[in-house]
Amino acid sequence: MNLPDQNDAPPNLLPYDGMVQYYGPILNSKAADEFFQLLMRRIAWQHDEAVIFGKRIATKRKVAWYGNLPYYTYSKTTKHALLWTEELLQLRHWVERRTGETFNSCLLNLYHDGSEGMAWHSDGEKDLKLNGAIASLSLG
């Protein structure tokens, strides 16, 4: 699979603080489906845990943390990094090439159907790069 060459960065879609740039698809529909199936089989999915109003809960959503950082803590829960898979490294390379950013980790979220999601939030954890970019890919 080939990724188109990096173009000029798209405009910022946020009218105030912050920045959102939509780069469009980096994979065609067939490649996205193939990656989705690979990730479904090869990722070490686990139910996410969160602390909400002082109570630890397991979510329906599943997650997996891969990367160079040894751990990542959010919602008072620590994830320990797994080694990058070949598929994740390939996707990371394509996203880095397209955006001009670099990424040291990847939090994968598995939403089973339209009833799951993520509330509006800010990733302000101290473990992350200050003002670092967050790339989001949607497969499946």
Score class of each variant (00 low, 15 high):
N104R: 13
G67L: 03
L128M: 15
E125C: 13
G114V: 12
R61V: 04
S136H: 09
G140A: 06
N131E: 09
K30H: 07
E87S: 15
G132H: 07
W45Q: 07
L38R: 08
G117N: 05
E116H: 06
L108K: 09
D17R: 08
Q46S: 11
I43C: 09
S122F: 10
D17F: 06
Q46M: 14
S115Q: 12
Y66E: 03
L139H: 05
Y111I: 07
L88A: 10
Y66M: 06
M118V: 06
L69T: 04
L110N: 00
Y72K: 01
V95W: 01
G18T: 01
G67K: 05
L128C: 03
L107I: 02
D17Y: 09
Q6E: 08
I134S: 02
S136N: 13
I57G: 14
R98S: 11
S122C: 15
A31G: 07
S105F: 01
M40E: 13
S29T: 15
G54R: 00
T99L: 02
G24Q: 13
P10D: 00
S138K: 08
V95F: 04
G140N: 05
R97N: 14
L83W: 12
L107E: 03
K126Y: 05
N131L: 12
L27H: 13
D8I: 08
W84K: 14
V95P: 01
W84Q: 06
P4N: 00
F36E: 11
A81F: 03
E49C: 10
L27N: 04
D5W: 11
L88V: 13
G67R: 01
K76P: 07
L137E: 08
L38P: 01
R61E: 09
C106F: 01
W84A: 10
A9T: 13
A81V: 08
N131F: 05
G124R: 09
L14K: 04
H112S: 15
N7R: 11
S105L: 11
V20C: 07
A133Y: 01
G18M: 00
N2D: 14
I43A: 09
L139Y: 01
Q90S: 14
A31E: 02
N104D: 15
L83F: 13
F35Q: 06
Y16D: 05
V63K: 06
K126D: 08
L83H: 14
T59I: 04
A135T: 04
E86Y: 09
E125K: 11
E125Q: 04
I43D: 00
